[in-house]
Structure formats: C-alpha cells, structure tokens
Write a protein that binds this DNA or RNA. Sequence first.
DNA 1: ACAATAGTGTCTGTGAGACAGTATCGA
DNA 2: TCGATACTGTCTCACAGACACTATTGT
Lengths: 232, 232
Amino acid sequence: MTAEQEFLNSYDKSIYEKPSVAVDLLVFTIEDDRLKIVLVERDEHPFKNTLSLPGVFVGINETLDEAAARGIAEEAGLRDIYFEQLYTWGDLDRDPRMRIISVSYLSLTSSEKLDITAGSRTASVKLIDVDKLLRSDIPLAFDHRKIIEYGRERIKNKVQYSRIAFEFLPEEFTLPKLQRVYEILLGKPLYKANFRRKIAPLIEETDHMTSGDAHRPSKFYRQRTDSPDIEL
Amino acid sequence: MTAEQEFLNSYDKSIYEKPSVAVDLLVFTIEDDRLKIVLVERDEHPFKNTLSLPGVFVGINETLDEAAARGIAEEAGLRDIYFEQLYTWGDLDRDPRMRIISVSYLSLTSSEKLDITAGSRTASVKLIDVDKLLRSDIPLAFDHRKIIEYGRERIKNKVQYSRIAFEFLPEEFTLPKLQRVYEILLGKPLYKANFRRKIAPLIEETDHMTSGDAHRPSKFYRQRTDSPDIEL
DNA sequence: ACAATAGTGTCTGTGAGACAGTATCGA
DNA sequence: TCGATACTGTCTCACAGACACTATTGT
C-alpha cells in the first residue's frame, strides 16, 4: 500500500464514521459560602429530568475555545469570564444515542456576574452545591458525575499554585472574603495571619474600606497586575 | 421550537458537519543523557519531509485511550507503557486539508523498552533531542511545535509532584541514574545529598550493586509500591 | 597511591503552622 | 462597655539549599 493510498484510506474511514464532538461546561461560582455549579435539568431522553452539565456541539467552523465561550454565553448568560480546558472524555458508551467525544471546560465566575436567568434556557438551569452533590447519590446524566469530580479536583489543586481563587470575586474585595474563598475551595480552615502573609505579594490596597458593619471595617484590595511571580 | 426539534436540529447539524478526531502522540524517552521525543518524517503533503508527531485517527468503536495505545504500538512498537492525556487542540486551520481535532497524549518510556525499529513505519521514525529542537527553528508540521512545547512543560511541572521520572528508567536503577533523570527533566543540577533525602521515602534497596566500574559501586533500588504518599 | 564516582553529616536560612495579642467599628 | 470581626507579632519546627567530608572500587 502506498503512502498516498494509506492516507486516503484512513481519511475516508474517518469521513464515514466520525464521532460527534461537543463541549461540556463546568461553570463554578461561590454563593452563600458554598461552591456551586451550573447544571441543567434535561427535558428530553435519555436522562430525562436528570441533572446534567450544559453543553453544545462544536461547530465545524468554530474552535473548541469558541464553542466553550458560546456555550457559556448561551447557557449561563456570561461573557468574558475565565475558562480553561479541563479534559476530553471519549468512552464509547458515554451517550446511548451515539458516539460523542466531549471536551470539558472549567469556568469560574463571581456570583455577581452570574445571572442564571440571563441564559436562553432559564427555566431548567440550576445552581447546585457541588460538594453536597458529590457526597450524595443524586443521579447525574451520562458520565457527568465523573467529570464534575475531576473538575472539583482540578480546582482544589490549582488554587494552591495559581490565582484562580480571584476569579470568584469582583475586582475589589476584602481579605476576609478572599480567605473564605480559599477555605471553601480547599475545604479546610486557614489561619488568618499565615494566609495574609502568603497572599500579600499578589494584592495591593485600595483607598477605601467596608462600612456599616457592627465591627472593625476591612480594607478593600485588588489583584496586583505587576510582578506576578509568587503564588500561594 | 420544541425541545425535540431543537435536539434533532443540533443532532443533524453534527451529523453532517463533524470534525475528524485524531490522537497525536508525544513519546518521550531519555537517551545519552538527553530528553528525546519520537517524531516521524512525513512522506506526503502537506508538510512533506517535515517532522511531525505520530498520530492516528480515532476509530468509531475505539476510546481515546485505546486509540492512543494503538498509536503508540503502531508507531513506536511499544506496549504497556505509561501515558496520559495532555490537551486537545481544536483550531480551525490546524490541518489545511480538513478540520481535525487532535487529542494529544503524553507517553514516557525507558530507552531500553523503546525500539524504534519495531514500529510499522521504521524508516521515517526518528528520536529527536527535544530541548535542542525547541531552541532551534527547525520547522515542524501543523501546530506540533506548540504541542511539543506544551508537553515539555507538563513534564517539567509534573516531575516535581509526581513520580513520572521513574517511567524513564527500568524497574531497578541506581540513585545517580535517577538523579540524572531528574536533572535532565528539570534542566538544572541538583545536590546529591538533598536529592537522596527527598527521594528516599519513594524507593527501596535491592540486594545487588553495580560492578566493574573504576570507582565505588552503586546500589540498585526500585520504586516502593507501598505508602506512596510523599512526593519529590 | 590516585582518579573517579558513590554516599553521608551537618550548618543555615526560610517559611509554614500555630497561637496570642491588639485595633476599630456599631450598638 | 461589649460583642464582633479585622488585623498584627512572634515562636517553633521542618525542611530545602549549600557544602564539606568519608567510602569503595579499578588501575
């Protein structure tokens, strides 16, 4: 078999029997001191009335990142939020209807930006407490439980050497708020003094503070844009 | 539009315009104290006579991991070696012929196992010094330079918190050999005493040593299978 | 004896962890 | 003054980095 023939052969095979490609979206936020994820309740079979990750098929003239951004906009009404590719799932029986390869994306946003009612499928979109969901045995569509577990782990790991925690907060925030975010993502309490030491090089003061609370006010900070070297 | 119609619509669209899905393989090994990668010289257009990553299309009845394992076996003649998914590349113009989404896999092996002449495409398969390649401006096919850079970074990171370094050695090895592997992967020298301290909990002695060298012999070790907790 | 590499002992500084203490608001 | 939360000072211990030293082979 010549190389040319070999190529045409494999090319043809791929034309006639291609899997479908979709992106599944893990949109995380923090609300009421809990890490939550955007899920939709399916209104069709298979897995009718079961919770599932929002997802879209990847268009033939659309990159994966573009498909992810589109999906986030359509399902959660969000633009310009942080996202990164998570993992690609390719088991044969993921979807009983047909072969679908799913590229999952991890996306993080502050609860201020997230407006669930802004998406197109308002009614079926829910914000679910992730850690509670994963401890429970509530059924999830397809292999989405495994995917969510994987995403949850990625967050827990990445918090420790990157700045993803900041994505859960608005531009300006107090240190107690930031510490709460870290504690929620890591799932354990942190010491105030130590936390502030480690985080100090990553942030800078603003000129205003909280007010109105029945206790000492708290300075607002923002992320430093310069010299982003040291990490938590 | 009803939910049913909406599903059929997106389903049909995905049927008629699906991208192809391939896996690209980054098979790394260490030879002559250098980190090397398996590349093939393309014998067809596009990028004829240019170095590229070995890859295969994903069969419709094949998982991604299976496709990766098959590709590694076909191109490098290897079975049962370490591999993990790296990243999925989905730009529109990756391949000028058609839309191909590529799931890249990182694979590591000892040079003893790697026998380039065992693959099916013997003639065109080459072992290339990665760091030298990336410093050079030797052209690579498609977006493979970017993919190799990404893989190289993954190795550099993962060496520090996992045991992937061991994959480059046979089951039994001396500590000087292991230290060389770490130094090559990290791209910097390490202190003997410190290295041994850190690595100690991960390994166990065997009952034999090197011999025949004109210097003090060196104990053989193997990886500990129990209590794999502490990392480098 | 010497070259060459394997392997060990130990000092020092940095930084995480732990905890106690002080500061500043509203009521 | 008190409750509540923000913020700071400092001790300790583990450990990474650095370097000097000893050990064991073949020639």
